[in-house]
Amino acid sequence: MSDVRSALAGASFEGIARVAEAGLRGMISFRGDLSASKVKSALKAVSGVEMPGQRGCVVNGARGLAWMSPDEALVMVPHAEAEDAVSQLNKALKGQHFMAENVSDARAVFTVSGRHAREVIAKLAPVDMAGFGPGEIRRTRIAQVAAAFWMDEADALTVVCFRSGAEYMFGTLKMAAQPGSEVGVY
């Protein structure tokens, strides 16, 4: 399967921060008992990381795990491996009550990076960006769409939204990163 596209392949913008579409990422929406040891080991096996605590997010390259709710986790793997990862989970947890759905293509992913990356997000999401640091995932809205974001490192954020909102998200992030719009707070 050769012609596989993300929503806004390769789009990027330089303003007070750099906004770029991050291409296809493998994402699995997992529902189940996150405290069960079988679940924890199955998730670790596909993601390579330990299940974090409330609102935690551990990302290691293209793999990772994020806590989405008491019974929901986001599993990250390379895009091409997502279907296999679902099969792996289905096998490992057979007979239990859980759900693993490949939602890789339902999402659009962006990175916002640079000295004012925090401010760009703070213009659009009702979140206290002063105290926000790596290791946490925040689900909220960015302007008028539901979104989630985490910090990969200081001044580099990854933003996830529904694929259909990609143009809107990119356009909005660009507005917030327009030259001359540094707030000067963070």
């Binding site: 409330q54 609102r55 008491p70 009702p126 909220t140």
Partner: peptide
């Protein structure tokens, strides 16, 4: 009470 976020009304 589930995710611990103190959010403004527009999140709900």
């Amino acid at each position: 009470p589930y995710c611990g976020v103190k959010g403004e009304e527009t999140e709900f």
